[in-house]
Amino acid sequence: MMHVERILVPADGSAESEAAFAWACDLARYYDAEITLLYIVDTTKLGSLGLPGGPEKPEYFDHEQGKKILQTLCEKAPEGISVHTVTVYGDPGPDIVRLVDKHDINLVVMGSRGMGRVARWALGSVSTYVLHRASCPVLTVKADAQA
C-alpha cells in the first residue's frame, strides 16, 4: 500500500485546481497526510528580468491573486486537515518538480485542463510535464470529477 505523508496541490484558481484540492483533502484525511498548496507566479510571462514589481506591475497582481486563491482554498479545507501554502516565482512545470524533491512530496494532485492532443503538443501542458518528470505519483483531476 502506498504511504502518503505530504501532498502537493498546485493551485491557479481554475475549477480543475479546486477539484484537485477537494481530492487532496479526501486523500489527506484517509492517509492522515498534510497538504502543501502551491501558487506559482509564472515568470515566463514577466519581462526579461523576471523580477517581481510594485503595485503598478502586472506580476504584483499575479502575486496578490495567488494569495487570494490560496486563502480561498484554505478556507475550504475540512477541519483537521493540515494545509500549508507556498508561493514562488518561476516556471510552473520545473518548479513543481523541484518542490516535489525539496519538500519530500509523496503525491501531487493537480488539475488537468483537458487540452486535446494537438493543443497539448503545440502548447505543452504543466500537468503532462509534471507527470513525466516528478519522482512521485501524480493524480490529475478534471473540473467535474467528484471527490
Rank of each mutant, 00 (worst) to 15 (best):
T128Y: 06
L49M: 05
V138Q: 04
G93P: 10
R120K: 15
R29G: 01
S14K: 05
V100F: 03
M2K: 12
R117N: 11
G80V: 13
L70M: 08
V86T: 13
V118W: 06
V126S: 00
Y31F: 15
A22R: 09
Q65I: 14
E5V: 07
R133N: 12
K142W: 00
Y129D: 05
S48H: 06
S17D: 06
G50T: 01
Q146V: 14
A122G: 02
C25E: 12
R6P: 06
R117H: 02
L99T: 09
Y60S: 09
H63I: 14
G111T: 00
A143E: 07
P55I: 10
F61W: 11
S82F: 10
L8M: 14
E18A: 10
E79C: 01
I40S: 04
K67I: 13
V4Q: 08
E64I: 15
H84E: 15
G111C: 00
Y39T: 13
S127G: 00
P55E: 11
I81S: 00
F21S: 06
E79W: 01
V100R: 08
E5D: 14
E75Y: 06
A19E: 02
A134T: 11
F61M: 08
S125F: 05
E75T: 11
I105E: 10
T44H: 05
P52F: 10
